[in-house]
């Protein structure tokens, strides 16, 4: 039995948890390759034209996986409570996949505060569907969840040491993890920055138990945007510039970014929107001029 994991959307936040969970259960899995032009093209054809870019990419990945494995992992994520909701796209991703691909076999878990679906129970359910007893699945989950938390802590500390020790100019990229880590969206930008000798700080690696996002926004109810605001509060005075990275047409970002730009007037911020057109010349020009501003070059 082979489980297919699409390398898109929540893969970039939960990949380590999924991989260790399946490793612990000794389930074979394959992961789709990094997003490339073919996957994007396929995703574009499969989805309605107004869908956001990460969702298009997601369908492309599923299309790649659908014949290569027995089950495709398609979780649904609503939120853990009333004020930590996910983007509305993830509420419906499961049903979109089911309706777009005929006869696709999926395994899913559903994190939904209204139904009281907790992450551990849902993973145990998923383990049962794969043919394991609940105590085996439970043990595997506990172990992998611990490792997952350690891994995230480790990543955060690594980034922290970068911020403290690096002599280079630092730029904070603020976005959702599925934008930052994707080859066709965020990686393009970090590669350009790194080749220009800039230290890249990523908001997706930040973890904290405190909620400081209320300094900027009081009525926010999306967990992913809250993570962005928290990391902004944490890093804003320790970096030289901030990039707000959005994929077109992200509903949450366009409101939250508007608020960030209006509230933080004395910081160097650039708002970059990426869409499915793959021309990098304009992007390079904008980033280079932003780097010039950071370096204090005036004409």
């Amino acid at each position: 039995m082979i489980v297919g994991i699409p390398r898109a959307l929540y893969y970039h936040s939960y990949s380590y948890l999924w991989k260790t969970f399946f490793d612990n259960l000794k389930v074979e899995y394959i992961i789709s390759p990094k997003t490339n032009k073919d996957i994007l093209k396929k995703g574009k054809i499969l989805s309605t034209d107004e869908t956001c870019l990460p969702a298009k990419i997601y369908l492309g990945h599923i299309d790649y996986l659908k014949d290569k494995c027995d089950y495709v992992l398609v979780p649904r994520y609503l939120g853990v409570d009333k004020i930590n909701l996910s983007c509305i796209k993830f509420n419906s991703m499961y049903d979109i996949v089911k309706n777009t691909f005929k006869n696709i076999k999926t395994i899913d878990y559903n994190i939904d505060y209204i139904k009281g679906c907790k992450i551990k129970n849902e993973f145990i359910k998923m383990g049962k569907k794969l043919g394991f007893k609940s105590n085996v699945a439970s043990e595997a989950f506990d172990k992998s969840y611990k490792e997952f938390n350690n891994y995230r802590m480790h990543e955060f500390e690594l980034q922290e040491s970068k911020v403290v020790n690096s002599e280079l100019k630092k730029v904070l990229i603020l976005s959702h993890s599925y934008n930052i880590e994707d080859e066709m969206i965020g990686k393009k930008i970090s590669n350009i920055l790194i080749s220009n000798d800039i230290e890249v700080i990523l908001s997706s690696k930040f973890i904290s138990n405190e909620d400081k996002s209320t300094n900027i926004s009081k009525t926010l109810y999306w967990d992913s945007s809250r993570q962005i605001l928290n990391s902004l509060e944490y890093y804003k005075n320790r970096v030289d510039g901030i990039i707000l990275l959005t994929s077109f047409p992200c509903g949450n970002d366009c409101l939250v970014n508007e608020l960030i730009i209006r509230k933080l007037k004395n910081y160097k911020i650039v708002n970059i929107v990426i869409d499915e057109v793959n021309a990098s010349a304009g992007l390079v020009t904008r980033l280079e001029s932003f780097i010039d501003i950071i370096n204090g070059i005036t004409i």
Partner: peptide
């Protein structure tokens, strides 16, 4: 309206 995410999610299902 343009970029209304819940309705965009409903569109592929309605098409089917």
């Amino acid at each position: 309206p343009f970029s209304c995410s819940p309705e965009i999610s409903a569109v592929p299902i309605l098409q089917k």
